[in-house]
């Protein structure tokens, strides 16, 4: 049964990609767009296999992933830690919340001028961009996770003589974890969007740089190849975290699975 299901899904994926490629090819064949404006599927495919064969893809992919992980994990650690403290301390949070609410909707791209001034070029701007994008969802979901811990858990802890810091690690953090995991998922989504953007300023490597570099040498086929790789990478990251999130939720007894 599962095998059939998988086959059916694979079939649908193939159909949808073939139709899209077909339309694309027809548009190219119509001859109304110049080659540098709209590369052909064959050209992009050649570009993709070229990037794979000469290793450019994997070097840049590795660099990008390392930056992504650095920025994302830093955001996880700081966001969860601050979220636990601020969620627990309602009065401090009431002072900090307005600031967070103003800063949160600001796209990390708006910070670019300052990011370059403060962090220069190289890895740092990309890492900082990802950090900014991931930090707020993690912070906010942790705060709300802590504040929504079922009162009965706190009563039980109180009754059983569980005090800080045990209270935090044994009760509050695990109780808030499903909401925190949800925040981590949202953060991953918003951070990966900015993975490439951060590498378009001042970086000399990475997937974002690969695209900028291709644009500068007017290789639109390589630009598109890069875009496709980024899409695939994003999809894989999303599937990975969804898998982890569902495992956590199952263990915590939250029955609703996270789906598309």
């Amino acid at each position: 049964m599962i095998k059939m299901d998988l086959l059916k899904r694979a079939f649908k994926v193939i159909i949808s990609i073939s139709v899209l490629t077909g339309i694309w090819q027809l548009t190219v064949l119509s001859g109304r767009f110049e080659k540098s404006l709209l590369p052909s599927p064959a050209g992009v495919f050649a570009g993709m296999s070229g990037l794979i064969k000469d290793g450019t893809l994997f070097t840049n992919l590795g660099v990008s992933l390392a930056r992504f992980l650095t920025g994302y994990l830093t955001a996880v650690i700081t966001g969860v830690t601050l979220g636990l403290l601020l969620g627990w301390n309602k009065s401090v949070w009431s002072y900090i919340e307005p600031v967070v609410q103003v800063l949160r909707p600001v796209s990390p791209i708006a910070w670019f001028p300052f990011i370059v001034l403060w962090f220069g070029i190289g890895d740092a701007p990309a890492v900082v961009t990802i950090f900014i994008a991931a930090f707020y969802p993690i912070l906010l979901s942790t705060v709300s996770g802590v504040r929504n811990v079922d009162a009965v858990y706190l009563k039980v802890a109180d009754n059983f003589g569980i005090r800080q810091p045990q209270l935090l690690f044994r009760i509050i953090l695990p109780a808030a974890f499903p909401l925190i995991a949800n925040g981590l998922h949202i953060a991953l989504g918003s951070a990966r969007v900015f993975l490439v953007a951060g590498e378009m300023i001042g970086a000399q490597s990475g997937l974002g740089f690969m695209i900028i570099n291709a644009r500068n040498s007017l290789r639109s086929d390589l630009v598109l190849a890069g875009i496709i790789f980024i899409g695939i990478l994003g999809l894989l990251l999303d599937r990975l975290i969804r898998f982890l999130e569902n495992r956590i939720k199952r263990k915590w007894g939250v029955s609703a699975e996270v789906r598309d």
Binding site: V152, Y153, K155, V156, N159, F160, G161, I162, R163, Q166, R170, I171, P174, A175, F177, K251, W252, G253
Partner: peptide, 25 residues
């Protein structure tokens, strides 16, 4: 010790680990 209507069990712990809770503390 109070026992609540909605049990107050910690869902991330197994039966044994729930029973152990106070002893851990």
């Amino acid at each position: 010790i109070t026992i609540f209507q909605n049990y107050g069990l910690l869902p991330w712990r197994t039966v044994l680990r729930n029973v152990e809770l106070e002893l851990e503390a």
